[in-house]
């Protein structure tokens, strides 16, 4: 079997005395799409934020694309150019246009030539379906459009892995699909993805595996069909009944 794209080995994470990740052992294969779900506060965000080292862990090891993220000398810039992240609240830079948001990292981190960067950025806006919004500031874009720009911004560094933390939770219902479609396309193109979401339709269609967390523990890991049809744990059953009832 190929080397995993992401591997958690006995990872423990504390916020002060709060134990938020407990002995996490998890691997994600290249090209795999993993959906992480679970009740609020179960540690889903913290889990994926460890992958690009936005959070540091207290014990255990995380290996991303063959390199340890948790060792003292880890090259975080290199790591973050290979791992894109999309946040619930979009987090576009408000003083830059859509195009400038997308161009920033390739210009400043990769130091590529401006003309080339702009060409790529425009192509990415095309890919996420809003080529005409290049010169809009974030304030003048809808939530769905902002999130698509945020995805384009993450893709601009040509990452090998994409992390999504509830990318559609802040969106009005009519905008959720436009974002999920972009994500579905990405998955189809073979992107390795870890997605925290409660969009169970998306999980069913796109995920290869569902990871269910509760209280900082990975309670259950299963293929979507198995997970939705017959969750093995009580907690997953309770969670699903709540989430699927509306």
């Amino acid at each position: 079997m190929a080397e995993p794209a992401i591997a958690f080995r006995l990872v423990n994470k504390f916020f002060g005395r709060l134990h938020v990740l407990k002995d996490i052992d998890l691997t994600v294969a290249p090209g795999e799409v993993v959906v992480v779900c679970g009740p609020s506060g179960s540690g889903k965000s913290t889990l994926i934020r460890c992958v690009n080292a936005l959070e540091r862990v207290q014990s255990g090891e995380i290996v991303v694309l063959g390199e340890s993220v948790t060792s003292a000398g880890a090259n975080l810039t290199r790591l973050r150019t290979q791992v894109g992240m999309v946040f619930q609240s979009f987090n576009l830079f408000p003083h830059m246009t859509a195009l400038q948001n997308i161009m920033l990292a390739p210009l400043k981190v990769r130091r590529l030539a401006r003309a080339e960067v702009e060409k790529t950025a425009r192509a990415l806006l095309e890919r996420v379906g809003i080529p005409d919004k290049a010169d809009n500031y974030p304030a003048n874009l809808s939530g769905g459009q902002q999130q698509r720009v945020a995805i384009a911004r993450a893709l601009a560094m040509h990452p090998k892995i994409m992390l999504f933390d509830e990318p559609t939770s802040a969106l009005d219902p009519e905008m959720i699909n436009e974002v999920l479609e972009v994500m579905t396309d990405l998955a189809r193109d073979g992107m390795t993805m870890m997605v925290v979401t409660h969009e169970m339709g998306f999980a069913r269609r796109v995920a290869r595996r569902i990871v269910f967390m509760d209280g900082g523990v990975v309670v259950e890991e299963a293929a979507p069909e198995a997970f939705f049809a017959s969750p093995t744990s009580d907690r997953a059953r309770q969670f699903l009944s709540k989430i699927l009832s509306h």
Binding site: N52, L54, T77, R80, T81, G84, M85, F87, S89, N91, L92, F93, P94, H95, L104, A105, K108, V109, R153, A154, A156, M157
Partner: peptide
């Protein structure tokens, strides 16, 4: 919001770049 700094880090900016290009201009 702290998330602006996190977004800067997530796209690979160093702390210095995040301040110079994102945090201070805002």
């Amino acid at each position: 919001p702290r998330t602006q700094f996190e977004a800067s880090q997530a796209i690979g900016l160093s702390v210095w770049q995040a301040y110079r290009l994102v945090i201070l201009p805002i």
